[in-house]
Amino acid sequence: MTGPVVPVAAPLPEEGRVRAMARLYATLMRTAVVEQFQYRASNYFYMIGMVAEPVVYLVVWSTIARSTGGSVEGYTPGRFAAYYIVWTLVRNMNIVFTPYGWEERVRQGQLAGQLLQPMHPIHHDLASFAGWKVVVIILWLPIAGVLTIAFRPELNPTLLQGVVFFVAIWGAYLIRSLLLWVLGMVTFWTTRVSALYEAYFVAELLLSGRLVPLALMPGWAQSVAGLLPFKWTFGFPITALVGPIDRRELLVGLGAQLLWIIIGALLVKAVWRIGVRRFTAVGG
């Protein structure tokens, strides 16, 4: 039998916010790296499987370029090769917690567990997937090596382009994480939203530079793409490294990424607040 034998313990002291956040991200990233290295074989096969898509695009566009006098809109086979090899890394950086994962998260009660923690669950996803990206980049290097030998890319970036590319792939990761989080939170209202997700992914496929470099699209399509987030998570990072791109365009690109990060973060905050209220009203 038990009873109030000792006074109730005071809450444990709390670490400072910045230090605790840094520790949280470091711990989650480290945990993800260790976890993903355990699955290195399946990760590798997954990545190799993913190479098929850009190789098809590359072969098609290279053939077209050769048959039309050596280039399409200034894209030579060598530049197409550079574009689609860099594509493979950017594509991997674009993989984040998908809306489909949300349904499972709600159904299996993981979200309820996270709601009990004094931390916004988006940090968990951002940090875990960022850790995974570290593994992906390491595993990607040999794949890029093989593709380079096979397709001989023309790639001569400046130091500035290299730096902007490095920043931009993480910016892309952040934007896509935030926006797909917002899309995933639709699960708070209904689980029958796969058509909505598919519409998003199709728009992204066409207007991001994934299917075709945006420079080859009609002018109006390029204008529309500039107003949407997809280009800034896909086409922009690739072009930042592959070119042609000037200093002003590099800065505009980073600015656009920053803008979409802010929009994404505000959307996450607003939808999360309303969504959790709904979730806790109808059932945890």
Partner: peptide, 11 residues
């Protein structure tokens, strides 16, 4: 455990 330490900001 390490993760929970970070989440709950335990010194």
């Amino acid at each position: 455990f390490e993760l929970n330490r970070a989440i709950y900001r335990i010194p």
